[in-house]
Design a protein around this nucleic acid. Structure first.
Lengths: 232, 232
DNA sequence: GAGTGGTCTAGACCACCTT
DNA sequence: AGGTGGTCTAGACCACTCC
């Protein structure tokens, strides 16, 4: 029986015995070493595998913790993040990390076609029950949303578009894949650079098929479960 | 600069210099060891990280290879797997691993409600350009599809439903998440047990809202990119 | 200062694949 | 038989967190 199975079983047993809950800290790597008479690398291999399966997660230099249930999310019937989280008994938070004009970013500007103008990047970190779970970069045309940086940006961007600027999202297209985190995203999420994450790239359009915003999301891979339904 | 970055950069440079393509074998771990004057564990850490990012993949005890482009897949406008793959210049194959009646599987039978009857499990392995990329388990009611096991099962199940049994899929619901592979799935995909994979759970219904089939897919995480559009 | 994970070295033996 | 990855030991030092 391979080691990460043993560790998994041990953690499951302990969790049941001691009533461990989501976010509970598990014994340190050195404790597990003596418990299993194994070397630290072996233990870490097992923990890393459990992490990649979404069973535990790590906080840099603090420890390993039991993963909570995933947030269930429907990218099509896109309801408000706060609503969605609260409905599932989680405490959502949003932190605005930075708002910056983009002077030179050909790949982003290319998304907006010939319609250049200065683009704006909004970088936000979202938490559930205090744990950072997602970093998103939102790109839009500064000219579409004058004075946006002075608005409260920690709520629903969609609602801000609609209420302050009379811009309605009509339809959207998303790509979903597993990829690695870049250094800034990793630092914000509190995970080592290069750790795999669930990546969602989304383009949202108005009723005239004009791109309104371009959105890159990076989710801790144990934090999200997507739900997609085809039309009936 | 962290090691997996160095390795990544080295591999990218080499790939460009030598014109490496998708599925090209990269130097063995021991070769990389001498090249980087690093211990094997350090090398493996780097390779494992590159793997979890979808940049390289492994074949058990054979080596590490450059990942090909991902198959782009829309679970809503569910076109035929073969069609989708060929349109993207990939060579698709399907292997029927087993077809077995399920006598006792409460979790599966529960999906089919009170309407028990013997359920059937169809286990298939799908390849792209010779590489195993996905394992799927399809569950259905034996009574809905008499003699199914005698039909050719390596093509589109949806078309078989429609053409041989006059059963039309009307709508479906999918859940998408990252999880670990069980031993049988891992063995079929040729990866170590417990490796993270992209998991899709799908339920498909007829026009009367009756569950037709229940489908569990396990994708190598570097093999797939999902595309989802909201209605316009 | 003590404890945590992050990174790394220098070996070892095994199972399996290729030749 | 020789090469590959899979698994493992027994150490080490560092950066950071907590107290």
């Amino acid at each position: 029986m391979s080691l990460h199975h043993q560790i998994r079983q041990y953690l499951l047993d302990q969790a049941q015995m001691h009533g461990w809950l989501a976010h509970a800290k598990i014994p340190s790597e050195r404790e597990l070493q003596t418990k299993f008479h194994a070397s630290r690398i072996t233990i870490r291999d097992g923990l890393t595998k459990l992490e990649s399966q979404g069973f535990i997660y790590r906080v840099n230099r603090k420890g390993w913790f039991i993963s909570p249930p995933r947030l269930l999310w429907d990218p099509c019937h896109r309801v408000n993040f706060y609503q969605q989280a609260r409905d599932q008994g989680m405490q959502p938070e949003t932190e605005v990390v930075s708002v910056n004009p983009l002077y030179d970013a050909p790949l982003i500007r290319h998304q907006f076609g010939m319609d250049y103008g200065n683009n704006l990047e909004l970088l936000r970190l979202r938490r559930l029950d205090g744990r950072p779970v997602m970093v998103e970069r939102i790109y839009l045309r500064q000219t579409d949303f004058p004075g946006l940086a002075q608005q409260p940006l920690d709520g629903s961007i969609t609602e801000l578009f609609a209420n302050k600027y009379q811009v309605q999202i009509n339809h959207e297209s998303s790509h979903i894949l597993v990829c690695g985190t870049q250094s800034e995203e990793a630092a914000l999420l509190g995970i080592p650079e290069g750790t795999a994450c669930l990546h969602i790239e989304r383009k949202r359009y108005d009723a005239n098929d004009r791109l309104v915003d371009y959105n890159l999301e990076y989710w801790r891979q144990d934090a999200l479960e997507l739900k997609v339904s085809s039309r009936k």
